[in-house]
Design a protein around this nucleic acid. Structure first.
Lengths: 121, 121
DNA sequence: CCGAATCCCATCCGATACTG
DNA sequence: CAGTATCGGATGGGATTCGG
C-alpha cells in the first residue's frame, strides 16, 4: 500500500482522453445525449465496430460514459455521458478553443517563414 | 487547397500534449524557467537521452518551447517555454486539478464495489 | 444489432553504443 | 555536454471474419 508521490496528475486526464476516437465520441455524446451503438457508428465515419467498442469500453471503465443494455431481440445498447463524465467538459472545451487559435497560429508561422525565405532571394 | 470541416479541434491540443514525457517536461519548464539539457535529464528520472531529445524536438516544432544553442565547448543548450507555449498552461492546470479529484473518485468507486461484494456474502 | 476473435502493420518507447 | 544510430519489444489501430 504505497502511494506514488506523483506531481503529474495531468496524465490521468490525458490517459482518459487519448485514443483515436475518444474526443469525438465524448463531444458527440455531450451534445447529443444518449445514443445507441449503431447511431454512434453512423455518426463516426470511418470507425470500425471493433474500435468503437474498444473506445466505449475504455470510457465506461473510467466511469465517463454509461452503457445500458436492453435485453431484447434485436439487441439495443445505449450510451450516455455520466454525471462524472460531464466534469471533463470544461477541459474538452478549453482544448477545443485552444485548438482553434492554434490553427491561426500555425498559419501565421508559415507566413513568417515564407517572408524570411523571400528576403533571402 | 481544401479546408477540413473539422469539428474536433480538441485533437490539436491533445496531439501536442501526448507523449510519455511531454506533460512533465512542460510542467517542469513552466515552473522552473529556462533549463539546460542535462538539468532536464537529471530532473526526469528514467528518461533516456533519445527520448528527451525526441520529446523536446516535437515540442519545439510546435513552437511550444524554444531551443537556444551556445556555440562553445563543451556544448550548452537551453530550453524554455515560449510565450505561445504558456497559453497551454491553463489547460495543463485544469487537467492537473481534474486528475487530483479523479484519484479521489477512483477510491470512492472501489470502496462502493467492496461494499456491494460484502452485501452478497 | 452488437460485439468478440484474429491477423497484420505502423508507431512508440527503452537499451545500448557511438560522436563532435 | 548534447546529441545520433541502431535494434527490438510493446502497444495502437485497421481489415476481416465469425457468433448470439
Amino acid at each position: 500500500m504505497e502511494k506514488k508521490p506523483e506531481l503529474c496528475q495531468v496524465e490521468d486526464a490525458l490517459g482518459i482522453l487519448v485514443g483515436k476516437w475518444k474526443p469525438i465520441i465524448l463531444l458527440y455524446l455531450l451534445q447529443q445525449g444518449t445514443k445507441r451503438f449503431s447511431e454512434l457508428k453512423r455518426s463516426l465515419p470511418g470507425i470500425t465496430q471493433k474500435m468503437l467498442t474498444k473506445q466505449l469500453r475504455e470510457l465506461e471503465d473510467e466511469d465517463i460514459i454509461e452503457r445500458v443494455v436492453y435485453p431484447q431481440v434485436p439487441p439495443k445498447v445505449e450510451y450516455s455521458i455520466t454525471e462524472y463524465g460531464r466534469t471533463l467538459e470544461p477541459i474538452l472545451e478549453a482544448m477545443h478553443e485552444w485548438g482553434k487559435s492554434h490553427t491561426a497560429h500555425k498559419r501565421k508561422k508559415s507566413q513568417q517563414q515564407l517572408t524570411e525565405i523571400n528576403k533571402l532571394s
